[in-house]
């Protein structure tokens, strides 16, 4: 259990470094993939089984860690990402538990649909927060660049989905 927690903490930091430093060189039109969000999403998605559902603590732990890492390495004040990710984590659990599954508990069709929905929600809520609390950084980016950014992040999310499924689901 401790090994798993340490590995998750380590990977969140690695993804943060990749996101802000390494992928700055692979940023078409200034788009940087949100790898921390992608990793958080993949972990929550696969931890939510139809029954029994994941415990609250694991979602809070992931939201705290991912949110902290996201905020530390960004221009925002600390805390907002933790709240948004916790909201998304619990909302995902609720949504996933109400989705019908047959055979495969984690179909790719659910994954990419949920990813798009929750990524948009995350970005929209973050923009609302910035608009009211940190207006110096508030930029509403709902244009073609946002769509492109969504697609770019989905690419990494699908990659994460395939890797996770191959390593931890199919291997069982």
């Amino acid at each position: 259990m401790w090994k798993k927690i340490l590995a998750i903490i380590f990977l969140f930091f690695i993804f943060a470094f990749l996101q802000i430093s390494f992928f700055a060189y692979f940023s078409p039109f200034g788009m940087v993939p949100n790898l921390v969000f992608v990793f958080f999403f993949v972990l929550v998605f696969f931890s939510n089984k139809p029954k029994p559902v994941t415990n609250d603590f694991f979602i809070v732990f992931l939201a705290f860690l991912a949110g902290l890492v996201l905020d530390i390495f960004s221009y925002r004040k600390l805390g907002i990402s933790i709240a948004l990710l916790a909201l998304i984590g619990f909302s995902m659990r609720k949504t996933q538990s109400s989705l019908k599954v047959s055979g495969d508990n984690h179909p790719i069709s659910y994954f990419w649909t949920l990813f798009l929905v929750y990524f948009v929600i995350y970005e929209a809520l973050m923009d609302v927060y910035l608009y009211f609390f940190e207006p110096a950084y508030s930029v509403f980016n709902f244009n073609w660049l946002f769509i492109a950014n969504l697609a770019y992040n989905l690419l990494f999310a699908l990659l994460g989905f395939l890797v996770y499924k191959k390593l931890f689901i199919n291997a069982k």
């Binding site: 530390i72 004040k77 805390g79 709240a83």
Partner: peptide, 26 residues
């Protein structure tokens, strides 16, 4: 969120301080 907001500056600085060389490598 309130507590973290109050201590944003020292926490961020602490993390940047020891991760700066790693970020530079990346």
């Amino acid at each position: 969120i309130y507590v973290l907001g109050v201590f944003t500056s020292p926490i961020k600085n602490f993390f940047y301080n020891f991760t700066s060389p790693i970020q530079r490598s990346f």
